[in-house]
Nucleic acid binder design. Structure first.
Length: 109
DNA sequence: AAAGTGACGCATT
DNA sequence: TAATGCGCCACTT
């Protein structure tokens, strides 16, 4: 990481990771929620960027969806199907093929 | 260096 | 109700 030119970004990334790691099993959260927890509701896009940059890692990014509950892109993991499968096995309910049931599974501090 | 792009979200048309 | 536009910020070309 380049602290000189991107000090803010570095800190932001760390925070995002910390939050995502805290998501309990069987729950999901949204990019917007994470951004809000960080203090700036408008950083939702960056949250997505951070997760994409890290994708498959120690961070359970499959528990992060957009504000409608829609699963992220087919580009992540092995495809949206894989993500849905993982979420379902954790007990996350689905409204339809690509939308989680935020009503009962949305996690918030 | 400038413009285009994107794991988003909200307001407006 | 659906479609479009704009803000936000880092990345890529």
């Amino acid at each position: 990481m380049d602290y000189t030119t991107r000090p803010r970004e570095f800190n932001f990334n760390q925070k995002v990771y910390e939050i995502v790691k805290k998501i309990p099993k069987g729950k999901v959260t949204t990019y917007g929620s994470i951004a809000k927890m960080l203090g700036d509701p408008h950083l939702s896009r960056q949250v997505g960027w951070v997760l994409h940059a890290n994708k498959s890692s120690e961070v359970p990014c499959h528990r992060v969806v957009d504000r409608t509950g829609r699963l992220a892109p087919n580009f992540a993991f092995d495809g949206a199907e894989e993500q849905r499968r993982r979420l379902e096995s954790e007990g996350v309910g689905f409204a339809d093929e690509i939308h989680v049931d935020l009503n009962s599974c949305l996690w918030q501090e």
